[in-house]
């Protein structure tokens, strides 16, 4: 920890010195304004309304203290959604990182037509999440979806929107498919950042390419991997909203939803603004704790070379 802290502060030391005290603040102002308007203000609003029971038609609000929080945390529904969110996040993160790493390692070795190959792999990155969800829905369609038909051949009769497992499966596959290109780009640039002579030295020291990957390449990719881990967990948590919404076609029923989607459901479908705000406050705390834990624990094992 101390080592990396010293190292990081060393990197930060190369800073510009300003003569005037106001100039740095002026330069920071646009960023601060955006953070305030789009994050701090809504967050403060959410914290405030999480302590109130709001009239669905906006006629008034009653202060209820911690009631919204206790109601949320004691409901069995919330526990079920939290468990699903955990499992969903794990699979989306693990699979999209794993598949992207595999593709990046293979693409790194391609010599002929490397650039067009890489461009094709990044293509999906340009697709917006709801559109990705829509494409996913088409692929998994009950009647014409090629993936559904393929699994039907193998004897799996998929029922998206009816079966909990089948719906989760379709969501996970679509979410992973959407995220792989982002991870791919980062892993590829991470791989290309590894010194060629270090890889050559390893090829003289170790015959097995598989072993070489796990002992030299993978540890050197750790900074990239750590960064992507945070990005992917955040993605699975928050940015999969569009995909889930399209897959469910606005009919959540007993289908799998994530915590973020539940915030939307309870707030805008159920008109329970107070409960919904309490849930977003819990999510904020969760993300805060997650970030602290990740930086504290994982960074210790990561080498910034």
């Amino acid at each position: 920890m101390r080592q990396s802290a010293v190292h990081l502060s060393g990197a930060l030391m190369k800073k510009v010195q300003f003569q005037s005290r106001t100039v740095p603040f002026l330069l920071l102002l646009p960023q601060l304004a955006i953070v305030t308007i789009f994050f701090l203000w809504p967050a403060a609003e959410a914290v405030q309304s999480s302590f109130y029971l709001e009239d669905p038609f906006g006629f008034g609000a009653t202060f209820v203290g911690m009631d919204n929080f206790t109601d949320t945390l004691t409901s069995s529904d919330y526990g079920r959604v939290a468990r699903f969110t955990g499992v969903f996040t794990f699979f989306v993160t693990f699979l999209s990182l794993g598949i992207a790493l595999l593709l990046a390692v293979k693409a790194d070795k391609v010599l002929r037509g490397a650039s067009s190959y890489k461009t094709l792999l990044m293509w999906v990155y340009a697709v917006a999440p709801p559109v990705a969800g829509l494409i996913g829905v088409l692929l998994f369609d009950q009647h014409v979806g090629p993936i559904t038909e393929f699994f039907a051949l193998l004897g799996w009769d998929m029922q998206i929107g009816v079966s909990f497992f089948d719906t989760s499966f379709a969501m996970t596959v679509t979410a992973v498919w959407k995220q792989v290109p982002v991870n791919f780009i980062f892993f590829l640039s991470g791989l290309q950042g590894i010194s060629k002579s270090v890889q050559e030295a390893a090829s003289i020291d170790c015959r097995s390419g598989f072993r070489r990957f796990w002992t030299v390449t993978f540890p050197l990719l750790a900074p990239t991997g750590f960064f992507l881990l945070i990005i992917n967990i955040t993605y699975a948590f928050f940015d999969t909203f569009g995909i889930i919404d399209v897959v469910l076609k606005g009919e959540p029923g007993n289908n799998p939803v994530t915590l973020v989607y539940k915030v939307y459901l309870d707030g805008f479908r159920g008109n329970d603004l107070g409960g919904s705000s309490a849930q977003s406050v819990i999510l904020m705390l969760l993300v805060f704790i997650l970030t602290v834990i990740q930086f504290r624990l994982i960074e210790r094992r990561v080498h910034y070379t």
């Binding site: 050559e200 003289i204 170790c206 015959r207």
Partner: peptide
């Protein structure tokens, strides 16, 4: 023959030590 099986050792210009 694979580099690892040639029974040679190489010293590189930028040392190529394993940083981790």
């Amino acid at each position: 023959v694979d580099p690892a099986d040639r029974d040679i050792a190489m010293v590189f210009q930028n040392y190529a030590l394993y940083p981790h």
